[in-house]
């Protein structure tokens, strides 16, 4: 049972190659981290897995628990258990957070079945308490006027509510101060489970001080160039990405 990315190749619509054959397997129960310099293709990888239509998959495959997701639409992938926490979450004016998350949960129910509102709010408030989010966030429009930290917390809240099988967190640490980072990490750590695989995408090692990964991969120029244990993150922190490029060329 895993999220399995096999020799994944993708281009922009204009044909520019971004992913040049990424192979990665994230079994349930494990937390993997992908690190890499800007432009290495980390964010593209997350969007391609989620099904973003701005990219063309030119080779390879992505399967979840053995099922190929290539033919699935974005929303079908989400309902199949993939969750992408966005680096830059969109704002949705006029749609309250509570209604938005409710609509997302409702989309997972069979037609005609309605969410139990009382249980829903109880669950929502419990998750918000854990993320130290003020109750007023339920009534506020999704991400509108939110600070960077509030947006990231809101992403984790959605992840906690939707209980996906595979979570991909794209630069979740960017724009967070230490206190916010700790809260976000607390939420993510609370989601760690033998039934869930996680992929953290980050530029810096500091996120990994709070969310300890089982495996660390380094991405450069559209490929995974090195994989290892948590110590790899420290190595990168110490030597920087130039060290890796040199190693790759050697």
């Amino acid at each position: 049972m895993s999220l399995h990315i096999q020799d994944l190749q993708a281009t922009l619509e204009d044909g520019t190659e971004i992913l040049k054959g990424v192979t990665l397997e994230i079994p349930k129960g494990e937390v993997h981290a992908i690190m890499g310099p800007n432009g290495s293709g980390k964010s593209t990888l997350s969007k391609v897995i989620a099904g973003h239509e701005g990219y063309v998959v030119t080779g390879g495959s992505v399967t979840i628990d053995g099922e190929d997701i290539e033919e699935m639409s974005i929303d079908e992938r989400s309902r199949a258990g993939i969750f992408l926490a966005f680096q830059y979450p969109a704002e949705v004016p006029g749609v309250s957070n509570a209604n938005f998350i409710r609509a997302a949960l409702q989309a997972r129910l069979p037609k005609g079945e309605e969410i139990d509102a009382v249980a829903y709010y109880k669950n929502l408030y419990a998750k918000m308490d854990l993320l130290e989010m003020d109750r007023k966030f339920t009534a506020r429009a999704v991400n509108e006027g939110f600070s960077g930290g509030e947006k990231k917390r809101n992403e984790i809240l959605q992840m906690m509510m939707l209980e996906p099988q595979y979570c991909i967190l794209d630069e979740t640490d960017s724009g967070l101060d230490i206190d916010a980072l700790k809260i976000v990490a607390k939420g993510v750590n609370a989601m760690r489970s033998p039934d869930r695989g996680m992929l953290l995408i980050t530029h810096y090692q500091r996120l990994l001080d709070y969310i300890k990964p089982d495996h660390v991969h380094v991405m450069a120029e559209g490929r995974i160039v090195r994989s290892g244990g948590p110590e790899l993150a420290h190595e990168l922190e110490k030597h920087g990405y130039d060290f890796l490029k040199e190693a790759a060329m050697a």
Partner: peptide, 16 residues
């Protein structure tokens, strides 16, 4: 498109 992508990425179909 990015707004639609965001909502779809939460499981909501494009028409909804």
């Amino acid at each position: 498109d990015e707004e639609i992508f965001y909502l779809q990425a939460r499981g909501i179909d494009p028409v909804s």
